[in-house]
Amino acid sequence: MSVKPKSLWQKMWEPKDLQSMAPATKVLSYSILLFWTFIVLFPLYWLFVTSFKLPIQVSDGPYYIPFIDFEPSLHAWEYIFIDLGRDTLRPYMNSIIIASSSTVLAVFIGSMAAYALTRIEYKPKVGSIVGFIVILGLVVYLTVVVKMQWQLTLSIGFALFVSFVFAFSRYFKRSLGNNDILFWIISQRIMPPVVSVLPIYIMFQQLGLLDTHFALIVTYMAVNLPIAVWLMRDFFARIPVELEESAMLDGASRMRVFLTIYMPLAKPGLAATTMLILILSWNEYLLALFLSTADAQTMPLMVAAQNATRGPQWWYMSVLIVVMIVPVLIAAGFIGKMISKGQLSGAVKG
């Protein structure tokens, strides 16, 4: 067999060798990638430019490039940061406090559970779980329908459950495994927040905690916990079990093993998980809409509120959105570096 001379079509679409790209593929790939870069960046550019426009420049039709098309003005920035001042800063601080503390809590508590589920074998008895569900149903019934005090019903329920477990647990044969627990935790994520937010709203209302940082932090943490468990379990599972065994033989407690061996080794995983949850809680809208009104108002609500009585205030909105993106970008750059570093050291070890 001799190698046939290539046709023009082949020359266009077939690379010279495996390290390079064919001319047509190259042109096509780069144009699509650059086109998508434009699609991604243009809305952000437009927001950025709009934040420097006067209302008249927005309503008069499109102006594209500052200094050439139109004279940029800082009026919107002045309004948001000087005129509104504290009213901007408060939701901004709220968002920072709520997003960061709920993320830290979710990642830490989730990591604990994820570690436990990778390295410790659990065998919850089916019978105990059925008993628990029955008792919980009873508690709900007593609280909501019979209108007993929830403090009372909860403690009765707890006492009932403890005595139930002690009395009957040795008769239960069938038990579930770690994967069932994991599935149960992850499946909570399927639940649309709109289903649970009404009762949570009522719960916090009863406790007098509506419109507080606490309510939002706890709720965000609960909503994001399944993600943390799910992602961290994968990262922990990759850490060789011998490390834990040798540390335990050296006399370390489980908690110490978790804190001094697993957490540092899973740093890239922690970074990725933290980043994802941080983004989710920073941008969260629906739960905040239900649970906060003024004091604990977060940035997404503040942005949404710019659509007020006089129609959408594009320039103010743009400022707020740009200001909201910046910290996430910074965090992403910082955390992204950690992720890639971790992967690199992992690759070197082979």
Partner: peptide, 14 residues
């Protein structure tokens, strides 16, 4: 990384 609320407004403008 952009808040969905922001995306909604940005696309309304665009």
């Amino acid at each position: 990384m952009v808040t969905p609320v922001g995306i909604a407004y940005a696309f309304r403008m665009l």
